[in-house]
Nucleic acid binder design. Structure first.
Lengths: 109, 109
DNA sequence: CGTATAGATCGATATCTGTCAATGTACGAG
DNA sequence: CTCGTACATTGACAGATATCGATCTATACG
């Protein structure tokens, strides 16, 4: 058996460092699951391309129905990747860059 | 409408740069889907903790049946995250660090 | 007030996915 | 060649998920 190579890291457990605990793996899998959908990835990139964007401007470029868009924004927001603010009748969405950076770090960044 | 902020990048389309095409989003979603499972994340971290590891050594720490482990290694290999080599009766797995780095880049690295 | 609009939620449906028992395949030991 | 082991594949099943039409909620405007 080859020798074990393992690095200790206090913050932000990474996949390529110490073996993940079940809880850490479940948390990371939840965020990655939110990202693992082509519609949500395009949605995220559309939001990131602007400072802010409202839900009503997502249906057309994504070619999805209003309930479907609402579903995807909800999933991304639950994962902490999108932050929403309701102003008047409109829901405005922003990307949380720190959250995305945390995912990269967990992937061995 | 706030102004558009957009950066051009030749290589490795990133979620936070130009809006992803449907094809780019589908590709990225496929790899992220491979990562979006707690068992596969722990499997990956187990492989990464060693230079190499054989399938038979994964069942116990993952507490999954042999067919299930085989299924997960296949998914990770199909995503390019794991590279397998059969030597004798054993299947040896390694992590492809470049592939993982590509995912980080696609996530705005 | 009533009406129109943005969005969330519900219900139904089709598809995908994780899991394991059973079975198949390939390889080494004797 | 025969037997046991390591792994892959198949089939079945339960649970999750993406999607949309219909409906509900909240807000703005007369």
């Amino acid at each position: 058996m080859p020798a074990t190579k393992q690095t200790d890291q206090v913050c932000c457990p990474s996949v390529i460092d110490a073996p993940l605990s079940e809880a850490e793996a479940a948390d990371l899998a939840r965020v990655l699951g939110a990202l693992a959908d082509p519609v949500r990835l395009r949605l995220l990139s559309l939001v990131a391309a602007q400072e802010e964007i409202c839900s009503c401007e997502l249906e057309a470029p994504l070619a999805k129905s209003q309930p479907t868009v609402s579903h995807h924004t909800k999933v991304l927001a639950a994962a902490g990747l999108l932050v929403g603010e309701k102003r008047g009748r409109w829901m405005w969405w922003r990307v949380d860059p720190a959250r995305l950076a945390a995912v990269r770090t967990a992937l061995g960044g």
